[in-house]
């Protein structure tokens, strides 16, 4: 049997994953093949999702947008449907790696891998996104805010694949994705996704814990106080309190904790400037 298997339907793909316990699903391969090359992972097979038509494309649904798991970063970075409070997703997609890797990597792969420092998680948590997971038993939707459970651990079961990301319909209010990184295209040292929401904001912090950090309580407390620097500082501090950053080559844990309130304040002021 080939090492790379190329099913044509989702049913076939999850069937193969159920049948072959040591196989891994592969979407764009940008992270998976890099990990294979570094001998970090071992698999009996890669089940390529690239040939499954239903995983491609971005479609409007009754409730908003459905982004197929095989949608490449380059497509999202150029997607006209991502306006208003969804424009942060477009901004984030355009900051992943470089143009060539953006032709390869996919949103389904990125969400499936759940690298804490990757760009989509914070944006999707901020955007009230749901992850569509499909296995042999069918599909289920999981809120992005619940999806990541530990470092590289998610609610996705081994035999499941990320078939789509669901987002509410775009609202005509500003949103911004701020990323601090050593050089353009690097993983984030810290990142903040921020969207206007009436007289408040929705905010999620990335790369500062095992998953994106969002606090609806803190958001409620900030409502109506977006011009009050003391309230904004308290909001940033509340998010930093929820963070659990690593020490690594991109920065120390302490540095990241200090970045959070500043980046959050900067993102909120970006939005005020765009009103």
């Amino acid at each position: 049997m080939s090492f790379v298997l190329s099913p044509r339907t989702v049913e076939e793909a999850v069937g193969l994953l159920a049948e072959l316990p040591d196989a891994l699903p592969m979407s764009g391969g940008a992270s998976l093949v890099a990990m294979k090359n570094a001998r970090l992972i071992e698999a009996s097979h890669f089940v390529s999702l690239a040939g499954i038509a239903s995983l491609h494309g971005i479609t409007a649904t009754d409730t908003g947008l459905r982004i197929g798991g095989m949608t490449r970063h380059a497509q999202l970075a150029a997607c006209d449907l991502l306006t208003g409070d969804l424009s942060m997703l477009r901004q984030a997609a355009g900051q992943i790696a470089n143009r060539v890797v953006r032709n390869m990597g996919t949103i389904g792969g990125a969400v499936g891998n759940a690298d804490p420092a990757a760009d989509y998680l914070a944006v999707l948590a901020c955007g009230d996104a749901h992850v569509e997971l499909t296995g042999t038993e069918g599909s289920r939707l999981v809120a992005m805010t619940d999806y990541v459970t530990d470092w590289y651990e998610t609610l996705r079961e081994p035999g499941e694949i990320v078939t789509a990301i669901h987002l509410p319909a775009a609202r005509p209010v500003p949103s911004v994705y701020r990323k601090l990184c050593r050089v353009p295209g690097d993983y984030a040292t810290a990142s903040v996704a921020c969207a206007s929401d009436g007289d408040g904001v929705r905010v999620a912090v990335g790369a500062c814990g095992h998953g994106p950090i969002r606090s609806r309580e803190a958001e409620a407390a900030l409502r109506g106080n977006l011009r009050d620097p003391v309230a904004i500082a308290a909001f940033g501090a509340a998010l930093a309190d929820l963070a659990d950053p690593v020490d690594d080559v991109r920065g120390t844990s302490e540095f990241r904790l200090r970045l959070i309130p500043r980046m959050v304040a900067a993102a909120i002021s970006d939005l005020e400037g765009k009103r």
């Binding site: 080939s2 090492f3 790379v4 190329s6 391969g29 093949v33 890669f46 060539v100 890797v101």
Partner: peptide
Amino acid sequence: DVPVRACLTMAGA
């Protein structure tokens, strides 16, 4: 007609 990384592309794909 799209530039990609050969090192991240499985021959079998």
